[in-house]
Nucleic acid binder design. Structure first.
Lengths: 252, 252
DNA sequence: TTGACATAAGTGGTATGACCACTGTATGGC
DNA sequence: GCCATACAGTGGTCATACCACTTATGTCAA
């Protein structure tokens, strides 16, 4: 992936060991010789065929598996996997996790993606998309008292909106930050679970967002969504203040 | 990275070979024993210390290098590298490249990120950020006639806006799609280079966006930006139509 | 005949030891 | 003092052997 096409014509032995394997794999994938689901030759055969040693071939295999392009199963063989977003998710999670307050900052990415997706959803969503969002809304109402399940339902609802936008790029990015988003969701729920009137608010806010999509009004939908985020932020801040205040006093 | 924290307490030998290496590496990174720039023990020493064979350790090393966490230099050793976005970029480019029309769809992600970032920029941008954007604007005006340099200047301008938003998550995502964005930029410039009044439009549109940020008016800034995108889309469509019409006729 | 079990072949997983190629340093002669 | 060679340490590669898992095949007993 990193290197360019310079060596595409060269199946020759000028390459440095593992590069030969990567080159072979890339080419085979691009010209259709290998498709997701295909089974590769065994390590012994392939290493012979590419004239590299088995350890070298295994290094390359392991790296490809790490990147999600191969699924290696003990005793069965190595199978080609389509590009898998989970790798991207892991990598992003790990990269961003280094910084403090990332759970707050990832909220900005969430707002960005959802606000654009909801606009698209107003134009592009089909009946199935709307039904999916509605279903998640029901699920959300059923799990109001459980921070864990509630957080997941919340995430599922918003994911359905993004998917309704029918933009592969937006969905991919959203999935890429999904791990951090889920954490953020449950963390927020745990903070705000005791707030006065939170149940009614959650239901109303999400329903209004949903109805705006059904009405196919992009500006209103985005506005509702932004409002939802702003209020959520406000609630969260108050809850944190309350929590700190409680810590300060004796908790009789 | 993929697995969770269950085995964090287990330095024991319950792990499957390569996992031991990953576990060690992850732990050492998280508790600060390893920092970017550090040199790892030699393969022979480390394999002994982790009680795995050298080939297994090398497989893990190769995978980590592939992911950008290690820089392995022949004859010198293996050095820890900070997370490198370029891996993410490559992966995203490769994953999304499979689908047709991705260059159009990635525009949705771009709009999403920039529209949110410009809102943040209105609140958070410092003088240095504004100066940076201004500088890119000048550069943009100087390269109006060169599709290549012009495309890059265009990209640089918008990147400066995103950076002015001071959100690590947004910047990271933007960089992740940067490769596709750059292609998109130059492709658009090549299409619209001959359009009547395009030079004046480009300057005016970008300047207005810039001035909105300076005025610190989020709603206006986002509106200007969306308008810019919409008009760009319109221009591009017209140009494509014109190009097709020209092909239909004899090009005397 | 049919079921369950044992066996064998093929696969990935690991280990060992040796050797090559590259790098930096130390040691020798000049 | 300086340069060139030799050496030690490193990653890079290889060949071989063996272990563990999966599957299919075949065999034996009910």
């Amino acid at each position: 992936m990193a290197t360019d096409m310079e060596e595409l014509q060269a199946d020759n032995d000028a390459l440095l060991g593992a590069e030969k394997v990567f080159s072979f794999f890339r080419k085979a994938l691009l010209d259709g010789r290998l498709k997701p689901g295909d089974r590769l030759l065994s390590e012994r055969e392939l290493s012979l065929s590419l004239s590299v040693s088995r350890p070298v071939l295994r290094e390359a295999f392991r790296a490809l598996a790490m990147l999600g392009f191969l699924d290696i199963r003990h005793g069965k063989g190595a199978y080609v996997k389509g590009p898998d977003i989970s790798v991207l998710t892991d990598f992003l999670t790990f990269s961003l996790a280094q910084q403090p307050d990332i759970l707050d900052d990832v909220m900005q990415a969430r707002i960005a993606i959802e606000c654009q997706a909801i606009r698209l959803a107003c134009e592009r969503a089909g009946d199935a998309d709307l039904a999916a969002i509605g279903g998640r809304l029901t699920r959300l109402m059923d799990t109001l008292d459980d921070p864990e399940a509630g957080g997941e339902a919340d995430y599922a609802f918003h994911l359905a909106i993004v998917e309704a936008g029918r933009s592969a790029a937006l969905v991919t990015l959203y999935q890429a930050i999904s791990e951090l988003l889920k954490r953020s969701h449950t963390a927020r729920r745990q903070l705000t679970v005791g707030v006065q009137g939170i149940r009614d608010y959650l239901v109303d806010a999400h329903r209004e967002v949903f109805l705006s999509i059904v009405a196919r009004d992009p500006d209103a939908a985005e506005a509702r969504l932004r409002e939802h985020f702003a209020i959520g932020d406000e609630l969260r801040r108050k809850s944190m203040l309350a929590a700190y205040a409680k810590i300060g006093r004796p908790d009789s």
